[in-house]
Design a protein around this nucleic acid. Structure first.
Length: 408
RNA sequence: GCGCAGGUGGCAGAGCGGUCAAUUGCAUCAGACUGUAAAUCUGACGCCUUUAUGGCUACGGGGGUUCGAAUCCCUCCCUGCGCA
């Protein structure tokens, strides 16, 4: 179980300052949840992750089930001991893989499509009711996948996901859902959402049974997931339904339209319907320029691969303003990003970010990180990952400070 | 000096008479990335322009054979290896 305490509600927005108390410690919210899909923040060890001010990580049921398998993790005393991370952990249910290994893979798209696709593009074709992805099969009871490791078949439904997550042993786990593709039409979304709702009930049931079986109260917390795509009617319906169930908190999943304004609008539709006293987690969203807005909408935690993933592609997030040769990350925002692979950094002896006090910025130059990156040295990815996580966590820390002071 | 093997776009290295401005890799340049199939993927990469089933210059230099040569022949230059 978790306990959620709201310390302060903003008068200027729906933002709130809170504490999520778990068996493995307290999370000050709002908070970023760095992504540790394979029970590791890629390139960093647990101590380094701690030094980036990370409070909680999110790992993944689907990936851990494939390898090393939940039995192995249980044998190791659960995921915390397994990866030697003593702070809180969440696991995603595998619902995102229903999209990323399904329609996402078929269409070559992410869960948000930014630019309108050309009419003849396969990406623009609406996914309609009854349609199935090529490599997985979605059924009433769950989803048939194929292992990308050895091609073996595997089935994941609400019962299976909850059982696996029970053995993995994270503090917060998620109900199994379908993350529908952003190109799905209304009818597809409606059917998918209703199935996700039935899966939510089954997830709750499996979770309850698991608690009874272990003869002690379930130490985990279970979050339900709201879906509904870009459709107001569905988002509202989903938030009301999921919000009425005895979950410990709520995830908001799926797509969020194709521009920033619509994203906030959709999050607002949902949050207006969710109970105030339980934590809300926004799944897989967190471009730097979005963070303040989603927090103002009332999001308590959110996970995003951007700081870690972009780091491995040579991108360092930094404070603005900077020299003109550096492109704006988001126009009008107080931050930018550097592409450290660019030749202009070859002789740049400044730190990645002039205003950052992380150990990377205190000890290394752009010139050095540029060199490591070009030389394909893995330490480049490590230094960038460390800095980006520290930067994002500091950024959110600053937002907490602003809420506390009544500035946001 | 003799023998052998070679000289191809920034580099490595394919091609061995037409479909070759030339496979591929690297490098370079540009772009993408939001619950991680991701240290990944996409595009450009001789020059010019009215951007095209367009023009020009190109596979060490020069000459030749041929309707047509990076590809065949002659010659010169250069490189590597072996023998004197």
């Amino acid at each position: 179980m978790i306990d959620f305490e709201i310390l302060k509600k903003s008068k200027k927005s729906r933002a709130r300052l809170g504490l999520i108390k778990t068996e493995h410690g307290v999370i000050e919210t709002p908070s970023l949840v760095p992504v540790a899909t394979q029970a590791v923040v890629k390139t960093l060890d647990n101590q380094e992750v701690s030094q980036t001010k990370s409070q909680i990580l999110i790992s993944n049921t689907f990936h851990l089930h494939l390898r090393p398998g939940e039995k192995n993790i249980k044998l190791n005393g659960g995921i915390h001991k397994f990866m030697n991370w003593t702070k809180p952990i969440m696991t995603d249910s595998g619902g995102f893989q229903v999209f990323s290994l399904g329609f996402g893979k078929d269409l070559g798209i992410g869960k948000i499509i930014k630019r309108p696709q050309p009419a003849n593009s396969s990406k623009s074709a609406n996914v309609k009711i009854g349609q199935q992805p090529k490599e997985i099969k979605i059924t009433e009871s769950g989803v048939y996948f194929r292992s990308y490791i050895d091609g073996s078949k595997l089935f994941l439904g609400p019962k299976e996901s909850i059982k696996i997550q029970g053995e993995i042993g994270a503090d917060i786990i998620f109900a199994f859902d379908e993350c529908p593709p952003p190109t799905a039409d209304f009818n597809y979304n409606k059917e998918s959402m209703e199935r996700t709702h039935r899966w939510a009930l089954k997830s709750l049931e499996a979770f309850r049974n698991q608690g009874l079986k272990s003869k002690s109260q379930n130490r985990q917390a279970l979050y339900g997931i709201v879906q509904g795509g870009k459709f107001k009617e569905l988002r509202k319906e989903s938030a009301k339904f999921i919000g009425s169930l005895p979950f410990d908190g709520f995830g908001i999943g799926g797509e969020f339209g194709d521009d920033k304004k619509s994203m906030i609008k959709m999050i607002d539709w949902v949050i207006e319907e969710l109970p105030e006293n339980k934590p809300r987690h926004l799944l897989g969203i967190g471009y730097l320029e979005d963070i303040e807005k989603i927090i103002k909408s009332g999001v308590d935690t959110f996970d995003c691969t951007v700081p870690t993933h972009f780091a491995r592609h040579g991108q360092a997030f930094i404070h603005a303003p900077e020299q003109s040769s550096v492109r704006d990350f988001a126009s009008g925002s107080a931050s930018q990003k550097l592409d450290i692979s660019k030749a202009i950094f070859a002789k740049d002896r400044k730190p990645l970010d002039l205003k950052c006090d992380c150990t990377v910025c205190q000890n290394y130059t752009r010139s050095y990180v540029h060199h490591l990156y070009r030389a394909h040295e893995i330490t480049a990815l490590k230094l960038l990952t460390f800095h980006n996580l520290y930067f994002f966590n500091s950024f959110v820390e600053n937002i907490r400070r602003k809420i506390k002071k009544g500035l946001l």
